[in-house]
């Protein structure tokens, strides 16, 4: 059997993302990476919590944050998490077209989230002159939220690259793990956001 036949079986296995050794390795390695990412974000959260009141006489969090935009952003990201679940559901049913469709929706929601975030930063900088260099609080805020935003950007590029690369040839056992792992990454971005909206914004306006 050639490599091609092995990777394109007539009947897709139950868990296509873990059907090959490479797939199993990717799956496990990426989960471990998320364990490390947990510590990375915890360090950023910790730094933010330590410095959240260090406003250096500038704007404080409860004067700065508005909840409307944050709520909308949360809805975008939360929904995109569900749509990527749908994408993986169709992957497991070997329905490539529907998977691409749902991934497309995920990406669109991701871009909407990103646009809101950029608007928010722009707003703070121009309306309130609250920047990365205003105070330790400013540095910590932009770093934490910015790291998350950077993850969103990377996730979008990643999913788009996968979608374009595989648009013509469809699903096989070589790219199924890649799609799956990218979706894990996307969920993790949402996990981090849940804590950001709770700890940074909700606790920030209290």
């Amino acid at each position: 059997m050639s490599e091609h036949d092995v990777l394109n079986p007539k009947v897709m296995p139950h868990d296509p993302e873990r059907a090959t050794l490479e797939g199993k390795n990717k799956f496990l390695g990426f989960w471990f990476f998320l364990g490390g990412e947990t510590v990375l974000f915890a360090s950023l959260f910790g730094t933010y919590l330590a410095l959240r009141n260090s406003t250096n006489g500038g704007m404080a969090s409860n004067e700065l944050f508005g909840l409307e935009l944050v709520f909308i952003m949360t809805m975008f990201l939360l929904t995109s998490s569900l749509t990527s679940v749908y994408a993986m559901y169709h992957m497991k049913n070997n329905d490539f077209k529907k998977m691409q469709l749902w991934l497309g929706i995920t990406v669109a929601l991701g871009f909407a989230f990103l646009a809101c975030e950029l608007y928010e930063f722009y707003h703070y900088i121009h309306e309130y002159e609250f920047t990365f260099r205003s105070s330790a609080f400013g540095s910590a805020f932009y770093t934490l939220v910015g790291f998350h935003g950077g993850h969103v950007v990377f996730g979008l590029m990643w999913i788009l690259a996968l979608m374009f690369r595989n648009a013509k040839r469809g699903l096989n056992l070589y790219n199924a793990p890649k799609f799956y792992v990218a979706s894990l990454y996307w969920h993790f971005i949402d996990v981090v956001w849940v804590f950001i909206f709770t700890v940074v914004y909700l606790m920030g306006v209290l």
Partner: peptide, 19 residues
């Protein structure tokens, strides 16, 4: 802090070097 002017460890900006 060193290259982009943030204030994590700079006490004059409210930062804290123990972090």
């Amino acid at each position: 802090d060193r290259l982009f002017g943030s204030g994590f460890f700079d006490a004059s900006m409210g930062g804290n070097s123990v972090i």
